[in-house]
Each structure stands twice: as structure tokens, then as C-alpha cells.
């Protein structure tokens, strides 16, 4: 009958079709984004690591495991490649066992509203919002004959070392920079997590006579543990991702002198066209495959320490 209202069943069908369309449209972009930026990129990297680029064929040609064999030869026989891998790996303890604990302590002090806490918050976070090129330059120029550190040391009767010209000291200077510049990001994350801890808990602790150290280690850290785990895992991934810090601190040198090279910096410095892609893809994948299990293991291990607490 014309003009008659649709049956309840038809209405339901229509509504569920509209719902399906809505959900599909809303999911289309993220799924497409995931497929392209994760699926395609990763598949392409895996595939190309088994190829070589051939300009005569104008494309990638299957090469079997040759890139991996060459890589293995480099790792086993070339001292500089091993130094680079070791140096990359050292970013793990530096980030997770130096930078992160410091961030936790500083965040706690800020949480405790120490005098001038607001100013410290800005000071800590400032390096995170300045361009890395400016920050690295100001760090580097603080040392050396024209900086302000050397004259202070000289005045104290200490002969300053070659801060950025020694294979024993220079990598440590870069670690020091990473700790200094990386605090802000962690502090913002951890301060945010600590500020959500109910005041009543802290007040209760105070009434019970809980001291600073006990409050930090037995109350605050367990309560913000998920954030600590996230920061720890992010810190672990720096082994595979750090490159701009050594690059800029070493004057944009393409050779990463004094053992300052890292896995990503090697890839960054050596990629100039599709021709280098396959070998570097093999290199990156090899490092990821070897290292990612450690990250997963560390996350699993850390998640066993404290149970999630809702508050």
C-alpha cells in the first residue's frame, strides 16, 4: 500500500544496514592506513631484503639470501659493524636504566610540588620542544675550547679531554646528551600519570608516617607502573631508532666517527637510492628480528611485577 509505513523488521534491516555502512566508513580510513603504512611497507621491506635492485631490469630481482649472507659476513668479520651494533645496544641501558629512573625521581619531586616545581617542569621539557639541530649544536658547543665547560675545568686545574674526538669518550657524550634531552618527554608522561593518583592515598601514607622513599617506591611506582612499562618499552626501541642525535652531534658526518654509529644512522647514511634499499632492508630486518623478542620478553616480564590498579 503506497505511503504505508515500513514494517518494524524492514526498519531494523534498514537501521542495521545504515549502521554497517557507518561502521565501514569509519573503519575504512584506519584500515586503509594500516594496510598501506604497516602492511605494504613491511611486506615490501621483507620482500626487498631478498632482492637486489637491477637498473637494467628496472626493478628488484630475487637474490635469495645473499643480502643476509653479506650482512652476516660483515657482522662476523668487520669490527666497525660490530662496534656499531654494540653502540646501538647500549642505548637500551642508557635509556631504560639511567634516563627512565631519573625521570621517575624528577617526576616524583614535581608531583611533591617542590619549590620552583613549575620552573623545573619548563626546564625539563624545554629540550623536548626545541629543534634537535639547535639543541645538539648548543650541547656540542658547550664543550671544547670555545665552550664554557673547558675554561671551568682549566680554572680548576683539570686538562679538558677531547669531548667529541675520542672513541672512548664521544659515545658517552652522546649518551649524556640523550639522557639530558630525553628527560622531558618521560617526565611529562610520568607526571601526568602521578597527578592522577588520588590525593587520599598520599594523605593516608603521610598519616601512617610513610617517608619519601617508601612513598615513591611502594606507592607511586606501583600505581604508575603501566606508564613506566610503556616508557621502558619505548626506551628499549631506541636501540633500533636513534640516529639524529649522533648524526647532528658529530657535525652531520656521513661516517659516524669515533664509534658513534647506530643501526638507524647506518641505514640513514647509506641510503641514497633504490639500489641500496635491499641490503639496508635486510640489515634493518635482521636487527629487528634479533631484537624485538627482547622487547616482547621485557614487556611480559615487567607486566608481571604489579597488577593494574584502577583509581
Amino acid at each position: 500500500m503506497p505511503g504505508a509505513a515500513a514494517s518494524p523488521r524492514g526498519k531494523r534491516k534498514k537501521r542495521s544496514a545504515a549502521k554497517a555502512a557507518f561502521v565501514s566508513v569509519m573503519l575504512a580510513y584506519p584500515v586503509l592506513h594500516f594496510a598501506v603504512t604497516w602492511g605494504y611497507v613491511n611486506f615490501n621491506a621483507i620482500w626487498s631484503s631478498f632482492t637486489r635492485y637491477d637498473i637494467f631490469a628496472d626493478g628488484n630481482v630475487f637474490n635469495g639470501f645473499l643480502n643476509y649472507r653479506m650482512l652476516w659476513n660483515r657482522i662476523t668479520a668487520d669490527e666497525s659493524t660490530r662496534t656499531m651494533l654494540l653502540n646501538s645496544f647500549l642505548y637500551f641501558p642508557v635509556t631504560c636504566f639511567v634516563s627512565l629512573p631519573l625521570s621517575v625521581v624528577f617526576s616524583y619531586f614535581l608531583f611533591k610540588k617542590i619549590p620552583g616545581g613549575g620552573a623545573y617542569r619548563v626546564i625539563f621539557y624545554l629540550p623536548s620542544i626545541l629543534p634537535i639541530a639547535v639543541l645538539t649544536m648548543s650541547f656540542r658547543f658547550a664543550f671544547g675550547p670555545d665552550g664554557f665547560i673547558d675554561p671551568i675545568l682549566k680554572a680548576a686545574g683539570i686538562q679538558p679531554p677531547l669531548w667529541f674526538g675520542s672513541s672512548s669518550l664521544t659515545p658517552r657524550m652522546i649518551f649524556a646528551y640523550c639522557v639530558w634531552a630525553g628527560l622531558g618527554f618521560n617526565i611529562v608522561l610520568l607526571s601526568g600519570a602521578m597527578s592522577r593518583v588520588p590525593k587520599e592515598i598520599a594523605e593516608y601514607g603521610r598519616l601512617e608516617g610513610v617517608g619519601f622513599a617508601r612513598e615513591l617506591f611502594q606507592i607511586m611506582i606501583p600505581l604508575v607502573w603501566p606508564t613506566v612499562v610503556t616508557s621502558f618499552v619505548l626506551g628499549m626501541s631506541s636501540v633500533l631508532t636513534v640516529y639524529l642525535q649522533p648524526y647532528f652531534l658529530m657535525g652531520s658526518s656521513a661516517t659516524a666517527p669515533f664509534g658513534t654509529g647506530t643501526i638507524s644512522l647506518y641505514i640513514f647514511n647509506n641510503y641514497s637510492s633504490d639500489i641500496q634499499g635491499p641490503y639496508l632492508a635486510a640489515f634493518g630486518l635482521f636487527c629487528s628480528v634479533c631484537y624485538v623478542p627482547f622487547i616482547l620478553l621485557a614487556r611480559w616480564f615487567m607486566n608481571r611485577f604489579f597488577k593494574d590498579v584502577d583509581y
Binding site: F43, I46, W47, F50, T51, R52, D54, I55, F56, A57, G59, N60, V61, F62
Partner: peptide, 19 residues
């Protein structure tokens, strides 16, 4: 799936070389 994809692509590819 990865193994199959690698195998398929390897057969699909031009062996290259020359020039």
C-alpha cells in the same frame, strides 16, 4: 603466507643482469 609470497614473487621476477 610470507613464504608463499616470496616464492611467487621470485618466480615472477625478471632475472635481470646484462647491459
Amino acid at each position: 603466507a610470507l613464504c608463499v609470497a616470496v616464492a611467487c614473487l621470485s618466480f615472477a621476477c625478471n632475472p635481470g643482469g646484462g647491459g
